[in-house]
């Protein structure tokens, strides 16, 4: 357990000394979401109906943008090698990296999402649902994304390839995450959506780290 804490602490320490990285992802999220009205027009009802989908797609893109860096720096400077030969379970190290990724990207996105909701005229209870759905759903992006990042580690054209591998796997999160908010808007009880989102989180928390560990061993073979 102490390896989990020390890796996580180091992740946060490094991020604190390079604040730009996490901040850029957050700004990207808001910029992408703000572009949609320029493309589809400012009609209020249409925007309100789109709001959840736009926020969620912007979150997926922001996650994909941030993921290549998850293991790349550690790979380049030899840290990853040390993590594989260390007498610590690799799964704990990967879990700490994933937790760090979520704290630095997923959590800020979820907290900033109401800003987008307000731009799109979402009522207060839908704003709350948007935050809740992102809080449950963004860890899935980190779990599955870590597997994608590990699979494309050191591969040429890694960023675009990572997007191709991982975006299709995000479809269920998008359906239930955005669906929860839309359901709330149209007066349907969103608890089914949120429960299913929780179930997906449970599944991805098992398979994501497993696949990431296996892929890291392959990448460093």
């Amino acid at each position: 357990m102490h390896s989990f804490v020390s890796v996580l602490r180091r992740e946060l320490q490094i991020a604190l000394r390079r604040k730009g990285d996490a901040l850029n992802v957050l700004v990207f999220f808001i910029v992408v979401a703000s572009l949609f009205p320029f493309g589809v027009g400012p009609e209020a009802n249409q925007l309100r109906a789109m709001a959840a989908g736009v926020a969620w797609i912007a979150a997926l893109l922001a996650a994909v943008l941030s993921l290549p860096r998850l293991f790349a720096a550690d790979h380049a400077d030899g840290t990853l090698e040390q993590m594989l030969v260390a007498p610590q379970p690799l799964a704990l190290v990967v879990l700490a990296k994933i937790t760090g990724h979520w704290l630095l990207t997923g959590l800020p996105l979820a907290l900033a999402a109401p800003l987008i909701g307000l731009q799109y005229g979402l009522p207060a209870d839908a704003l709350g649902l948007l935050i809740v759905s992102l809080l449950i759903g963004t860890p899935v992006l980190s779990f599955l994304g870590a597997a994608g990042a590990a699979l494309t580690l050191g591969v040429r054209g890694g960023g675009a390839l990572l997007a191709l591998l991982i975006l299709p796997l995000f479809v269920p999160v998008l359906v239930f995450g955005a669906g929860a908010v839309t359901a709330g808007l149209t007066g349907i009880n969103p608890s089914a959506h949120l429960s299913l989102l929780g179930a997906i989180l449970a599944v991805s928390s098992l398979i994501g780290p497993w696949a990431a560990c296996a892929a890291l061993r392959v990448a460093l073979d």
Partner: peptide, 13 residues
């Protein structure tokens, strides 16, 4: 091996 991991990840999904 990398392809296998991805295929297994896909088959669960």
């Amino acid at each position: 091996r990398a392809g296998a991991i991805l295929a297994l990840l896909g088959v669960v999904n």
